[in-house]
Structures are given as C-alpha cells and as structure tokens.
Amino acid sequence: MRAAQDADPLVTAERAERRAVPPALDTMLMIGGLVALWQVGTILLGHEALPSPVATVSKLAGIMADEDFPRHAWETARASLTALVISLVAGLAIGLALGAHRLAGEVAEPMLTALYSIPKITLYPIILLLFGLGISAKIAFGVIHGIIPVILFTMNAVRNICAVYLRSARAMRLTAAQTAGTIIVPAAVPEIVSGFRVGFALTLLGTLIGEMFASQRGIGYMLVKAMETGDTGTVMALALLLVVLATAASAALLALDRRLRRHALAS
C-alpha cells in the first residue's frame, strides 16, 4: 500500500511540502546553467545536430508565426483539454466510489496499478480500431493515461479521511451525496490536486503520443514529421515549446498543491 503511492516519482509534492519553498534565484541560476550546457553541447556537436538556444528560440518564433501553426496547436490543446476534463471528472467519481467502498477498492487497486505500469502505448492501435482515425482516438488515449493516477489518488485520499468526520456525517444523517460534497471532497482536496497534477502531465503525454502515430494534425504530428525529415531545428523548437509549457503548468499546479497542503496542516 505504502510503496505503491508515496514515492512515485511523479509525486514529489509530499517531499516538497516538508521543505521550505526553494529560493527562486537558485532555480533561475539552475535554468541558466542548463541553457549554458546546451550552448556548450551545440559547440561540441555542431549547429546541424544541436541548434543553439538562440537559434532554437528564433526558429520557434518563426514556427509560431506560421499560418498553419494555430490549427495544429488548437488541435492538440482541444484534444488534451477534453481528455483532461474527462480524466478529472470520471477519475474523481470512480475514485470516490472506490475509496468509499472498501471491498471494491481492494478489488480494483492492483488492477489499476498494473495498468499504470504497463506500456500503454501499445494499446493505441486498439484505440484507433475502436474510435477511428481522428480526434476522438487521441482524446481516448489521453484519458487512459490520465485517469488512473486521478483514481488512485482520490481513492487513497478518501480512505485516509479521519474517521471522526465520517462518524459525524452519520450522526448528522447526511445523504451519500451530501457526505461526498461537504465532507469527503473538502477533506481530500490536497491529495486530489496532486492527482490532477500527475493526470495533467500524463494526459498531455498521451495526447502527443497519439498525434505522433497515424495523425495528420497537432503538435505531435508536426514533431514526427520533422523527425522523419531530419529537421532538427524544428524538433528542438517544438521540444522547447513543450518543455516550457509542461514545466510552467506543472509548476503552477505544484504551487497550488503546496498552498493547499500548508492550509490543510494549519487548519
């Protein structure tokens, strides 16, 4: 039980919460160091193999100014956001149900963890056969990546709720819906946010992989096309875009996560 969750590399929030918020200056220095390392790599490998940071940024600006770009970006954004919403809503509902019903949770948990650690990319052809080529296949693939962590986190959060809260709910004769809305969800919010964070990262990953295989649109498609034609400039520019976007979104959710946890500790 313990090992299945708390040292998951996707979930460093628990660790981070015990430490002070890292000095932003040091992180800035770190990012500067990474850029410098990149520049050194460019000098060693040559501009053809590894375009320099400056060249990559200007290339990215060029790509973003291109008239085709908004169409691709919108496709990826639409697919991953839809998948994210489905993962969150369905994952939350399933997680709450599994957390509240002990036996159902015990039955489902090993199956979910097994599914989590399996290379799900190999399921993509099946998704394509079921949903056809197009955006619904990408969304479905994003969902199967993102929903499992949301379920697992929500389930564990519900299980770990202080028993007194539940007993008071029973004493007050709350209905199941009232108990979920006024007791379980508020008490489990920090854990649920951690689940959302992991779910977000995996949904984006799933959608991109979906676009890289048998697709005609989206950032993933642009990437795989550039890879096939050996256009390293475009590959690096898109990689930079994804790294920055993913890191920024993840950092924002992490900050929210920390704030909620501190709040939960204080109250």
Partner: peptide, 29 residues
C-alpha cells in the same frame, strides 16, 4: 543541499516532458 533545492521544481515537472522528442538528437550522438 542548495543545488538540490534549486533542482526540486525541475525534478517535480520532469515527467510532464515527452522525453522521446530528443530521439533525433540521440541518433546524432
């Protein structure tokens, strides 16, 4: 310690990045 603290937010966001976009770079390497 100081280095690790600076690295922490980057480690926490690491898995949001699709690693295999660097495949072409590895082919060159």
């Amino acid at each position: 310690t100081r280095f690790r603290r600076a690295l922490d937010p980057l480690l926490a966001s690491y898995y949001a990045v699709p690693t295999f976009v660097f495949y072409p770079l590895f082919i060159v390497l």
